[in-house]
Amino acid sequence: MKFGIVIFPGSNCDQDVIDVLSQTMNQQVVKLWHKDHDLQGCDFIMLPGGFSYGDYLRSGAIARFSPIMQEVIQHANRGGYVMGICNGFQILTEAGLLPGALLRNQEQKFLCKNVYIKPETKNLLPTSLLDTNKPYKIPVAHGEGRFYTDADTLKRIQDNDQVMFRYCSHDGLVTPEFDCNGSLDNIAGISNEGRNVFGMMPHPERAADPDLGNTDGKAIFESLLAGVLA
């Protein structure tokens, strides 16, 4: 499996994702610059976290028009795998590859802390091996992470089993009290209808090494790879 990590001006989580995929998961990884028009034969494209183009206008609004995104959109439309983490999730919604939008956090503050998320389905690659009864501790670091969409789209996402994760308590309770940013229905991650494009606000790459004191994020990468390589 060959992974391509897209690097935009302002990306700052790209090396974290590269290290997890190449060193921890032993996968082939290449860097893709935002001005490129060549995905270099990559099977799976990852859009990392950060502050692409300084988050001017809206997070992801400018990055969505980077030259490489033309190729990423075509790749996704052909059924190729794409995943965005944090700023990458924002870019995917701006590009129309995922429904909804990521708005300013409810309390208008930048969040940087560990939270708990609960898998909502086993029918998506990043959650295929996860325990849907287990809360996973994963860090967040964002100012615009509040997932929002209209009522019809929300119903469609739920009916199609596209919700990957919801924010929850340490013991798995999904209530507004544990919704760290005010996201609609506690949603922390979703897929597209085709189940080949994924986005999540928490950072699993920051919780995938024993030296960091937390490997809950590694389970998400293991799940993703198991589904792709099956």
Rank of each mutant, 00 (worst) to 15 (best):
D14H: 06
G199R: 09
H142Y: 09
A63K: 01
G88M: 08
I138E: 00
A101H: 10
G10C: 13
H170S: 15
L229A: 09
K137F: 04
L124Y: 03
W33S: 07
L47H: 12
F198V: 11
L224D: 06
V163S: 05
H37W: 00
P126Q: 09
C13A: 15
D216L: 00
L184G: 07
V174W: 01
L224G: 02
H142G: 10
D179K: 01
Y116W: 04
P202Q: 11
N181T: 13
D16T: 07
E107T: 04
T93R: 11
P135Y: 00
A219V: 12
R104T: 14
G189L: 08
V20E: 03
T153W: 06
L154G: 06
G84V: 03
K118A: 00
H75F: 01
H170K: 15
H37C: 00
N196V: 12
G88Y: 04
L130W: 03
N87L: 05
A61H: 06
L47E: 13
L124F: 01
D161W: 09
R156I: 14
L102H: 08
T132H: 00
M25C: 06
S59T: 15
E71I: 02
T132K: 01
K155R: 14
E71A: 15
G96Y: 10
N123K: 14
R58T: 11
Q70D: 08
I187K: 02
R166L: 02
N114A: 03
R195W: 04
L102A: 12
L92K: 13
T121F: 02
G189Q: 04
N26E: 08
V163K: 01
N77K: 15
I187C: 05
K134M: 08
L32T: 05
G49S: 08
N77T: 04
L129E: 12
A207M: 13
N77Q: 15
L21S: 01
P9E: 09
S22K: 08
G182C: 07
Q15K: 13
D16L: 07
D171A: 05
G49L: 06
N26K: 11
L92C: 12
K113R: 05
F44K: 03
V115P: 00
L124H: 04
K113N: 01
T149W: 15
S223L: 09
D159L: 05
I45M: 05
E107H: 05
G80M: 02
R78Y: 07
T175R: 07
I73F: 01
G227W: 06
D179H: 03
L229I: 15
V197M: 08
G60K: 07
G194E: 15
H34Q: 05
G4P: 13
N196E: 11
Q15M: 08
D179G: 06
Y56W: 03
N123S: 14
W33I: 03
N181A: 11
F51R: 08
R146H: 10
F147W: 15
N26P: 02
L129K: 10
E222T: 07
I138N: 01
I45T: 07
Y136V: 03
M83E: 11
E94D: 09
A208K: 12
K134G: 04
I117D: 00
Q15C: 04
I187Q: 09
L21N: 00
P9I: 11
V115F: 02
D131T: 03
